[in-house]
Simulated scan of single mutants.
Amino acid sequence: MDVTLARTFLAVVETGSFMEAANHVHVTQSTVSMRIKTLEEQLGQSLFDRSKAGASLTAVGRRFQRHALSMVRVWEQARIEVALPPGYQSALTVGGQFSLWDGFLLKWLALSRTDAPEIAIRTQIGFSDALMQRLIEGNLDLAIIYTPQSRPGFRIEKLFEEELVLVSSAPQTTEPPGPNYIYIDWGPEFQADHSQFFPEISIPGIYMELGSLGLKYLLENPASGYFPHRLAKPLLDQGRLQLVEGAPRFNYPAYAVYPKDSEQNALAKILPPLRQAAGET
């Protein structure tokens, strides 16, 4: 069904009049009548009761209303995600694991704006499995994740080795991770390793999904938590944080995954700055 028909239907619902709906969607009243008639013929049901007072929904019309709303919302979302912004030659959608945006993918994004300003970039955040599935379904052009799946037609490229270390903003007087420990959700890979090494912390006292918030909390309160070494290093060098001795470290290689046949298109222009950002990490 044409989304224009759904928009016209919703305009009649909102205004209660074919004439007012025509003004709303900027067409003639006869066009509105024709669109509603076409819609009713496609559905095989009457959607409005017509009278001199206007148009009111039938029982079928009320049921169809939520579907029309859903259709328009889906179309608007698709238009935002797929349409090429003015002034750009192409667009790419890139997904990255939560922990990889801070200090790495944000740096790559800035480099890409310099090296390939003609490419519009849309970004998504998620965990490895979900991002890999979006890539397979064609909803992503590039995924940067910890645990890629080997699939025909896709290239997997290692970028760098991520290391999560336990750091503290106060002297540790107990065995790690310590009483003021905050758990940062770095993804399923970290969850599995954390459960193995710290089975006693099944329910942490403080749980956070965003690493940037966790780091801010550490700098403002005496506490400890796991963070990528590349993020913690400047603060360790400044003496604002300290490594917790004896705590296990967790290593996760970061990979770029993309279709093999895409290296000659717009993606080829943003891969070099991605490799550059990885080399500087």
Rank of each mutant, 00 (worst) to 15 (best):
D102Y: 03
P148H: 02
I145G: 06
V167Q: 02
A170Q: 13
G96F: 00
Y88D: 02
A116D: 10
R113P: 03
M132A: 09
E200T: 07
R113K: 14
L106A: 12
A110C: 00
L106S: 14
A130V: 15
S90W: 02
L140F: 02
I184K: 05
A130K: 08
A120Y: 10
E162K: 04
R113S: 11
T174C: 01
H194D: 02
T123R: 07
I144G: 06
S168E: 03
T123H: 12
D129T: 15
P176S: 12
Q149R: 13
V94Q: 05
S195K: 12
T173Y: 02
S99H: 12
Q172D: 03
I201L: 11
F104D: 05
E118T: 12
Q89S: 14
I144V: 15
G103C: 05
I182A: 14
K158I: 00
W101V: 12
Q97K: 07
H194L: 13
G138E: 06
T147N: 15
L142I: 10
D129V: 04
S99N: 09
L131P: 08
Q149A: 04
I184H: 09
A120K: 01
L142E: 11
I156E: 13
D193C: 05
E161F: 00
G187N: 01
I184E: 09
A110V: 12
I121M: 14
Y183E: 11
P176L: 06
A143R: 03
T174F: 03
Q196C: 01
D185V: 05
L166M: 07
P177R: 08
P176T: 10
I125A: 09
L100C: 11
L109Y: 03
V165R: 02
T173D: 07
A110G: 02
F98M: 10
G138Y: 08
L111I: 03
I182E: 03
Y181P: 02
G187H: 09
D102N: 04
A116S: 15
E137Q: 12
Q89C: 04
E137K: 10
T174N: 02
S112Q: 07
